[in-house]
């Protein structure tokens, strides 16, 4: 039978894991794609993610509305984005360094104010059941899908289409590829970057609220374990293409489910390496897919990390 096959169990678990775990990666990497397309890198999204997780949880707890929590998490994220965007426009201020500083600052603030919310239980986001057609419990569970995941897919398409075909997409891309060219076209470079970083921060905040309000669904200090930073890595991996961001996030989520899934069918030897699978996989793909000779396809020309 299908259910009896160990391989099927693992594949199903990875499929379910991809859907459950990928959403924060998806949101943060979409936000970072937009920011990087405008020519800046924001490593501070890890701090934004953690702060988003905390603030979303806190608001959901106080108001009883998890969706309001998601919104506030996004707004907090855009505040961090605004801070990053504003500071980086000052001469001689390095965007990578500011990002690292904001990562520390955002995490610190989240832990500081988050102490009061480790204990309480906040209302969580609902899910939509797409598994009504099957009577396999595991598959049915895998198809319990959070609306944010669907929203993320839509967003990936919108961003992909928008960057390519709309006027603001062109503006963002021009700013990211060559600031002098953008200036010549009368584009306010700093403002475009500020807005792109703010929108990127909004997405990262929403991604964080998914962690605390849906999966795993509570606020603790160890909640993120570097997911915001990994999402920034996924952007390079996804070649600044929002659709690839979606695939990369799915792949990363699936790889993360590999360790527990293998143990559930009795393979535990070397489980540390299976747990590190997402990182090993990302590194290998980055090594295989990059080249020192030509700059990466899709890479914004102004981006400090690709120079």
């Amino acid at each position: 039978m299908f259910e009896d096959s160990a391989l099927a169990t693992v594949l199903l678990a990875m499929f379910a894991g991809a859907i459950r775990v990928s959403t924060p990666f998806l949101f943060v990497s979409l936000g970072e794609t937009l920011t990087e397309k405008s020519g800046r890198i924001n490593l501070g999204l890890e701090g934004t993610l953690v702060f988003g997780a905390m603030s979303g949880y806190a608001i959901s707890y106080h108001t009883g509305s998890p969706w309001l929590g998601v919104l506030v998490a996004g707004l907090c994220g855009s505040c961090f984005g605004a801070l990053h965007g504003y500071l980086c426009k000052l001469p001689k201020v390095n965007d990578i360094a500011i990002g690292i500083a904001l990562m520390l600052f955002g995490t610190g603030l989240a832990f500081f104010f988050g102490k009061a919310y480790i204990q309480p239980q906040a209302p969580r986001l609902p899910s939509i059941s797409f598994g009504f057609w099957t009577d396999m419990p595991a598959l049915r569970q895998a198809l319990e899908i959070n609306p944010l995941f669907l929203l993320g897919i839509v967003l990936a398409f919108v961003l992909w289409w928008g960057l390519k075909n709309t006027r603001w997409g062109l503006t963002v891309r021009t700013t990211g590829d060559s600031a002098p060219a953008a200036l010549a076209l009368g584009i306010n470079v700093n403002q475009v970057r500020l807005l792109s970083t703010m929108v990127g921060g909004f997405f990262a905040g929403v991604g964080g609220s998914f962690l605390s309000l849906y999966y795993p669904g509570s606020w603790t200090e160890g909640l993120s374990s570097g997911q915001g930073l990994m999402a920034v890595a996924l952007v390079i991996f996804a070649r600044w293409n929002p659709l690839y961001c979606f695939l990369a996030a799915l792949l990363f989520g699936a790889a993360g489910a590999l360790g527990p899934a293998l143990q559930s069918i009795g393979i535990s030897r070397g489980y540390h390496f299976f747990n590190a699978a997402p990182y090993i996989m990302t590194l290998l793909i980055m090594i295989a897919s990059t080249s020192p000779k030509r700059s990466l396809k899709g890479a914004p020309g102004e981006l400090s990390i690709t120079k």
């Binding site: 890595a233 980055m286 990059t290 020192p292």
Partner: peptide
């Protein structure tokens, strides 16, 4: 240097 892999991300991984 030899593969063009971003050092910040690679060191984190």
């Amino acid at each position: 240097h030899y593969r063009g892999v971003n050092e910040t991300i690679a060191s984190l991984l």
